[in-house]
């Protein structure tokens, strides 16, 4: 009898461990298959390309021979994400501080909750709101920018509907604000109480407490939260596709329409794409993939470093 239970136990163990190992291998296989498949298709497209994949300002991937390049997309993706980061990160840090250290406690809990929920609002809804509500509101702001900074060329504006990279940047900033805020807030809340109380005991003002204990403690957390937001902004598709007026040229002015991003270009081109066109889009998707990978990798490195740091501290 005991030997019997023992053998079923062993059998059960073997079955279960193999099952979990098997699913791990299956997952690995799926992921590897995706990577390999995408890479192969991309290479096919890049080989056939008549233009230069990196510098050509056009997307005639369905033409024979295909002629396309990602210059415009790379520019648009990077610029709109940078705008989003510049706008969102300081504000997100501000809100995080507000929730963690400034707001009345009851209000803070409520706001923290709402921010978390906003992080889950689907991007298509941001797109809908952006296209129907935000774009008309921005014309006035852009005219004002043009009036004072138009001479730089970067902020020149011709009064046409505000469907430009700047608008995309602003919308992306609003979209990634909740996610950056909620991660940053978590980090700020973890600032060791002892440090803050020590600072207070020395007669520091609230701002001095924040500056001397909270911000140094949370710095790497803020950076990794920003990277998380940046990853979202880079890959965002629908919100961009609904507010941007795409074209394959780089406009010196950020306020005037035109440009494109990787994800938006895939969403608007795939339906007309023949097999070569799809391969070309996959190639561009792979570049986007690498870009997000870079950003996520950086974030992970920073988080890992912070873990050691805080571990040593604790």
């Amino acid at each position: 009898m005991p030997s019997h239970t023992k053998s079923t136990a062993r059998l059960g163990d073997r079955v279960f461990s193999n099952l979990s190992k098997g699913s791990g291998i299956a997952l690995l296989a799926i992921m590897a298959a995706i990577a390999v498949f995408l890479a192969i298709r991309a290479v096919v497209a890049i080989r056939a390309n008549e233009g230069n994949f990196l510098t050509t300002f056009a997307w005639d991937a369905n033409a024979d021979p295909p002629y396309f390049g990602i210059a415009v997309l790379l520019f648009g993706t990077v610029v709109s994400s940078v705008i989003a980061m510049v706008l969102a990160v300081p504000v997100a840090v501000g809100i995080a501080l507000f929730i963690s250290h400034y707001a009345p406690r009851r209000l803070a809990a409520g706001i923290g909750y709402v921010v978390d929920l906003l992080a889950a609002v689907p991007s298509i809804i941001y797109g809908l709101w952006g296209a129907l509500y935000l774009v008309p509101q921005l014309t006035g702001l852009y005219e004002w920018l043009d009036q004072f900074f138009g001479w730089t060329g970067v902020f020149a504006y011709d009064g046409t509907p505000a469907r430009s990279l700047m608008t995309v940047g602003i919308l992306l900033a609003i979209m990634i604000l909740p996610i950056i805020t909620s991660v940053t807030r978590e980090v700020f809340l973890q600032t060791p109480k002892a440090n803050q109380e020590a600072a207070l005991a020395l007669g520091a003002t609230r701002w001095e407490v924040v500056r001397m204990t909270v911000l140094p403690f949370g710095r790497s957390g803020v950076i990794s939260a920003s990277m998380l937001g940046l990853g979202r902004a880079l890959g965002e598709t629908m919100a961009v596709a609904t507010v941007l007026s795409p074209s394959f040229l780089i406009n010196a002015s950020l306020l005037e329409s035109g440009g494109g991003t990787f994800a938006q270009n895939i969403a608007s081109q795939f339906k007309e794409a023949g097999s070569m066109g799809r391969d070309a889009l996959i190639a561009s998707g792979l570049v986007l993939f690498l870009l997000t990978l870079l950003v996520n990798g950086a974030a992970r490195l920073i988080i890992a470093r912070r873990k050691e740091y805080s571990g040593a501290n604790a």
Binding site: I34, T237, I282, L288
Partner: peptide, 22 residues
């Protein structure tokens, strides 16, 4: 597995769609 899972968290959703489509 850990590495690929990490990599996959970064996959843009449209690229996943493109993979299944193709």
């Amino acid at each position: 597995i850990t590495f690929f899972v990490d990599v996959m968290t970064g996959i843009p959703s449209i690229v996943a769609g493109l993979f299944i489509l193709s």
